[in-house]
Amino acid sequence: MKVLVAVKRVVDYNVKIRVKADQTGVDLSNVKMSMNPFDEIAVEEALRMKEAGTADEVVAISIGVQQCQETIRTALAMGADRGILVKTDEELEPLHVAKLMKAVVDEEQPGLVILGKQAIDDDCNQTGQMLAALLGWAQGTFASEIKLGDGSASVTREIDGGLQTLDLKLPMIVTTDLRLNEPRYASLPNIMKAKKKPIDEKTPEDLGVDTAPRLSTLKVQDPPQREAGVIVEDVAELVSKLRNEAGVI
């Protein structure tokens, strides 16, 4: 089985972002970019399937600007076999990404597509579900365990009340939650090897996908700031303040 994994280039999760003064967006100049953490989990899961013999090829796809190549290289250094870059400078919405990925799935015919459950920049949590819809496939979202079977897979999902297990028909989409696995680091020799692995480049035009925007961002602002409060001396003072000043207990 071939496994396709989606990897997004996002602002590193340790970076404290700044909103631009003109409110047009978030300042991305000179900011460290990394692979979306949920996508690292997706790559790791695919690699484990390959190591277990249930997958025979792992293909990493990224959609966006030329520098997304670096994100694909990271996936290749972790152990993915080859990469696909769908190159565009347009700002894409999850719907567009899902349509582009569908076009790639139609060409590549993977048995499984694994994506992160959300990207930590736009926090949309949509692409995997949308891709499943467009393909008419089952979706195992927010997965904390995947057990591949014959023609179907059992996926355990993190839900609000606990855990839910579904039996889903293959081919299917999985989106990863935090507890699915702990992603590996790429070793130096593997980083060197990854430089020789192939990355195929395409454009939305090649794939025949219209990426005209449906949403326009009118402005981006700072959230309301909380003011730091007071440090209390001891528990008794805390309780008295909560009762008498805040009135919350």
């Binding site: 404290k16 978030v26 736009d122 926090d123 326009s216 009118l218 981006v220 602002q221 700072d222 959230p223």
Partner: peptide
């Protein structure tokens, strides 16, 4: 809607 873990608030208009 909040973006970047709530560190920015985006105002978006939909044409759908």
């Amino acid at each position: 809607r909040p973006i970047y873990a709530g560190n920015a608030m985006a105002t978006v208009q939909s044409s759908d």
